[in-house]
């Protein structure tokens, strides 16, 4: 579908704490490590709502606080099963004439928010909206997912293009099927997954299908893009899917964060987009493709227009240099893994 929306502000939040996958392996296997070096862990007093607030605050400041008419939050770890984060954030930011609601599609809730708000802006229903992806992802102790299931949030303030925006979103395609690669039933604390099934029929099939559909609709090819962002469940998959689609390592590298941060689910590709927007130049084109288990993929064409106008803004990779490593005991206490 053709879209005509603009990114007026962007922000990402990664909690201060990390656990190494060596530390996780030490507890469960005695030795070894996961596919990534570390993952970001939210502190005891953080959840998807507080992280969404942090990321959105950066994006709203960069956008100079326009009157927001929709807040959509993608998440699979909402603090309340019933009671949207969109409503809590509307009050916190002081926008009460608003559509405030949450979306869930495993790791692609955040890009759905971008797509829906872009649609409302393109059609003229609203002027400004806030799209957020935020998760404190949980992996069952000793499960493969525990190495990567991480915390983080990404946000974009969207509005109508006027020539001064940071970037334009011009096109998006979604490809969805019923694929049982990963799910969580009500009241279950941890998700269930079908292991190797998450690769070929799920991740690769859906991302490749949505990217190819976008290429068919727009006529674009990989060499038309300066950067490509693919969902990062581990360090390997985004590189592999990029290669299969014909992208180079140079196009992928600026957005690759899984090795040091893990997979922040709904925030994953929005945090990567923040890292890429930090280094991109006016005129650059970015291809972004998310993946949500269950399964589906949203692909976007993003054209960079101008650099952000915010003197206080600190680039994401600069902020990531400062972190504190915690051990498995602290992680267990903070992330509710201890039975009392």
């Amino acid at each position: 579908m053709r879209l005509n929306s603009a990114i007026l502000g962007y922000g990402a939040y990664v909690p201060k704490y990390r656990i190494s996958t060596e530390e996780i392996a030490r507890i469960w296997f005695g030795e070894g490590s996961g596919p990534n070096r570390m993952k970001a862990v939210a502190s005891y007093d953080e959840d998807a709502l507080t992280m969404a607030y942090e990321a959105a605050s950066i994006a709203l400041k960069m956008a100079k606080y326009p009157e927001i008419e929709a807040i959509l939050v993608g998440s699979e770890s909402k603090p309340y099963a019933v009671k949207p984060m969109g409503s809590i954030l509307s009050d916190i930011f002081g926008f009460n004439k608003i559509l405030g609601v949450d979306l869930e599609f495993a790791c692609k809730g955040g890009t759905e928010a971008v797509q829906m708000i872009s649609g409302m802006i393109t059609s003229g229903v609203i002027k400004h909206g806030l799209a957020i992806g935020s998760d404190t992802a949980q992996g069952r102790p000793a499960d493969d997912l525990e190495y990567t299931a991480a915390s983080g949030a990404g946000a974009v303030v969207l509005g109508q293009p006027n020539g001064n925006e940071i970037a334009k979103i011009t096109h998006s395609v979604t490809f969805v099927t019923d694929t049982p690669d990963f799910w969580r039933r009500p009241k279950e604390h941890y998700p269930t997954h079908l292991g190797r099934f998450t690769g070929e029929p799920a991740y690769f099939t859906h991302i490749m299908s949505s990217v190819k559909l976008l290429f068919e609709e727009t006529g674009y090819k990989p060499s038309d893009f300066n950067y490509a962002i693919f969902h990062q469940p581990n360090p390997k998959f985004p590189v592999e899917v990029g290669k299969r689609l014909g992208f180079t390592d140079e196009q992928l590298k600026p957005g690759l964060l899984n090795d040091e941060l893990g997979n922040s689910y709904s925030a994953n590709t929005l945090v990567a987009l923040n890292a890429v927007l930090d280094v991109s130049k006016p005129g650059d084109k970015i291809l972004l493709s998310s993946f949500g288990s269950g399964a589906g993929s949203d692909t976007f064409v993003i054209e960079v227009v101008s650099k952000p106008d915010d003197d206080d803004y600190i680039p994401l990779r600069e902020k990531l240099k400062k972190y504190v490593e915690i051990d498995y005991a602290t992680y267990s206490k903070w992330r509710n893994k201890i039975i009392r």
Binding site: D45, E46, D47, T50, Y53, E54, Y80
Partner: peptide
């Protein structure tokens, strides 16, 4: 100032968010 969880009323109650 940022916003964090202050406390919560057990597993089924309200979550109290506030500044830290």
């Amino acid at each position: 100032a940022t916003i964090r969880k202050w406390t919560e009323d057990g597993q089924s109650g309200i979550i109290y968010y506030g500044y830290k």
